[in-house]
Each structure stands twice: as structure tokens, then as C-alpha cells.
């Protein structure tokens, strides 16, 4: 999974690379166009284009019947029934591409969240560092400590929460930079990334996952922690990022869906895809 994440991550990084220093909307638009194209392609190759075309024509024809044979009750009923049936066929034809697309769309969304979900901490801002231990481990028995690089200040002693198997520290961002916090547990040590300041669009990883497969899928920004550490995850919650639009502050998910629908429909004619 780690290798897979690395590959997908690099692809995404490559797509965004030319726009990182610009307005984040630009990167969002580019990704929406690219993923829109990808989805169109998937739709075209996996759906029965001929079948979809026929279903849509049939619906049109029966709609016409409805208008033409207003006086015949029986004909009206028949047409209604046929429209329903054509609709059913249409949905069936679209089902396969949907199923095929579910996985890539999820992966795209996870990547988008990495890039657009959070913003770096501003100097002076605080965040909580949370270490979640593996099942069966007690934070009171743990000797995990944090080593912060210059630029990040650890402001509190560890707060050990037994019932959540969790140890918290409060961090304060002091100077801009991309940092790795080092956490030590006995002779082992591991790191967690923190990003402070900077205007470049960059992936921001809130959670460094443990060995669980699903956690890795959903948190692709950092390599998973080795199983031997007995740590389930380590987390620094960066502040939420919003995309400004005419005084509104949009969540990236809304921006992305709106844009991909617009581009999908705009481009379907160009690529002669029947949707």
C-alpha cells in the first residue's frame, strides 16, 4: 500500500506542480479537468455506449408519443410504461462504469483532501499532537517523548488519556518551515511531519497511519508506522483550508464536484461520449 500511495502521490504532485505557487483554484480547476477526462474515458470504455444511445433515443421517442397521442388513454399508458423501461435500461448501462469508477474516485478524493483539506499552521498558532497507542497499551506505561526541531515548540507536558489510549501535547508553530517531529519510545523513534507557513500549495498530512490497511488508504501522506512500535497513529491536526470565492469560503469537496460536473458535461461532446 505504501508504494501505491507513493506512486499516486507523485502523479498528483506532478499534475499540481506547475500551479503550486498560484491561486489554489487553478490547481483545483486543472485537477477537475483531468479527473473529468479520466472519468469520461472510463465511462466510454466500460459502458455500453450503443445501449445508452438506444435507451436515450427510446425515451425521446416515447416522450414524443405522449405528446402526439394525447387522446388515447391506452397509448398514453403504454408510452409511460416504455419510458420507465427505457429508463431502467439506461441505469443498467450506467451501472458498470459507476462500479468501475468508485475506486479511482475514492482515491482521487483522498488525494484532494491531502492537498486541499488543510492549510499549514501560521506562526503563533497551536495544534495538538496526538499519539494513539495500539490496543492493549496504556499511555501511563508508555515512555514516549517528543523532540521538536527549532521552529516548533512543545508547550505542555504529555497529557495521558487512559480511556482513549492517547497521549497529547500542545505544539506552537514558531517559524515557517516543513518539520519532522521526532517521537522516541525506548530505543525506537519515529517522526511526524508538521508544516508551518509558506504560500506554496503542498500536501499536508494530518495523520501518519499505523499498520492497518484502511488507515493507510485514507492517510496516504506519510509512510505507515512499523507494527513493532505498537502505535496506532500519530496526528497533528492542521487547520482546515477553505477556498475563497466571492466572500464565501468553500470546502474543497463542493468546489471539486461542481467543477467536475461542469467539465464533464462540457467535454462529453468533444470526446463524443454518451452520458
Amino acid at each position: 500500500m505504501a508504494t501505491f500511495n507513493a506512486v499516486i502521490g507523485s502523479l498528483f504532485g506532478l499534475a499540481v506542480l506547475p500551479f503550486r505557487a498560484m491561486n489554489p483554484w487553478l490547481a483545483m480547476i486543472v485537477i477537475s479537468v483531468l479527473t473529468g477526462l479520466l472519468m469520461l474515458a472510463v465511462f466510454r470504455w466500460t459502458s455500453n455506449q450503443e445501449g445508452i444511445h438506444r435507451a436515450k433515443e427510446a425515451i425521446k421517442a416515447h416522450l414524443l408519443e405522449l405528446r402526439l397521442y394525447k387522446d388515447s388513454m391506452a397509448q398514453q399508458m403504454r408510452s409511460q410504461g416504455r419510458i420507465l423501461a427505457a429508463n431502467g435500461r439506461y441505469i443498467l448501462h450506467a451501472l458498470r462504469p459507476m462500479l468501475v469508477m468508485i475506486v479511482p474516485v475514492m482515491l482521487i478524493l483522498i488525494q484532494l483532501n491531502l492537498w486541499f483539506g488543510s492549510r499549514p499552521l501560521a506562526p503563533g498558532e497551536t495544534a495538538i499532537l496526538k499519539v494513539k497507542l495500539a490496543a492493549g497499551r496504556s499511555p501511563l506505561a508508555s515512555d514516549i517523548s517528543v523532540d521538536a526541531p527549532a521552529g516548533i515548540i512543545v508547550e505542555t507536558l504529555p497529557l495521558r488519556i487512559e480511556e482513549e489510549r492517547e497521549i497529547d501535547w500542545r505544539l506552537r508553530a514558531a517559524a515557517p518551515g516543513v518539520y519532522d517531529l521526532t517521537l522516541k519510545a525506548g530505543s525506537d523513534s519515529f517522526t511526524k511531519s508538521v508544516r508551518v507557513g509558506g504560500s506554496l500549495l503542498a500536501p499536508i498530512s494530518n495523520v501518519r497511519p499505523g499498520p492497518s490497511f484502511l488507515d493507510q488508504v485514507f492517510n496516504p501522506g506519510e509512510k505507515p508506522l512499523p507494527r513493532a512500535l505498537a502505535v496506532e497513529s500519530v496526528e497533528v491536526d492542521h487547520p482546515e483550508r477553505r477556498l475563497p470565492l466571492l466572500g464565501l469560503r468553500l470546502h474543497w469537496l463542493i468546489a471539486y464536484f461542481a467543477l467536475s460536473i461542469v467539465f464533464g458535461f462540457a467535454l462529453k461532446g468533444v470526446f463524443k461520449v454518451e452520458i
Binding site: 495538538i128 501511563l140 505542555t156 507536558l157 504529555p158 497529557l159 495521558r160 488519556i161 487512559e162 497529547d168 500542545r170
Partner: peptide
């Protein structure tokens, strides 16, 4: 509350 450290969430 931490059981001994003077810190709370």
C-alpha cells in the same frame, strides 16, 4: 486530566 501532569484537554 492527566493523572499527575498539570495539563488538561
Amino acid at each position: 486530566l492527566d493523572p499527575s501532569n498539570a495539563v488538561a484537554r
